[in-house]
Amino acid sequence: MATSSSGAVAAQATPSYLPLALIDKCIGSKIWIIMKGDKELVGTLRGFDDFVNMVLDDVTEYTFTSEGKQTTQLDSILLNGNNITMLVPGGQPPEE
């Protein structure tokens, strides 16, 4: 129904899906989270809220320091959404 010219307007008003709908699809699978600063996490996404605070299981936390990469294993966490910059579905771990 929408013509190509009005398509952009229609998309603005009702986007086909919201960014958070993509994250909702990741629930139950691995996700790679890139934080502000030198930190990344990989874990199984269990849920999230409007602030993108996230519940994650079986998490590996990577901290990049001047001495190299430091990893920490965590069972189950609530991650503060405040410092998240990027989310990558699938969650390939940071390169070796």
């Binding site: 600063g37 269990r46 849920g47 999230f48 519940v55 965590l74 189950s76 609530l78």
Partner: peptide, 27 residues
């Protein structure tokens, strides 16, 4: 099950009164 959807508020109900580790931004 462990695969059930668990939002932040569910998580917090679970961990109240339990031993936790809180990590701050400064490490």
């Amino acid at each position: 099950g462990s695969t059930a959807k668990r939002n932040p508020s569910d998580f917090l109900k679970q961990v109240l009164g339990r031993p936790v580790v809180v990590k701050l931004n400064n490490g």
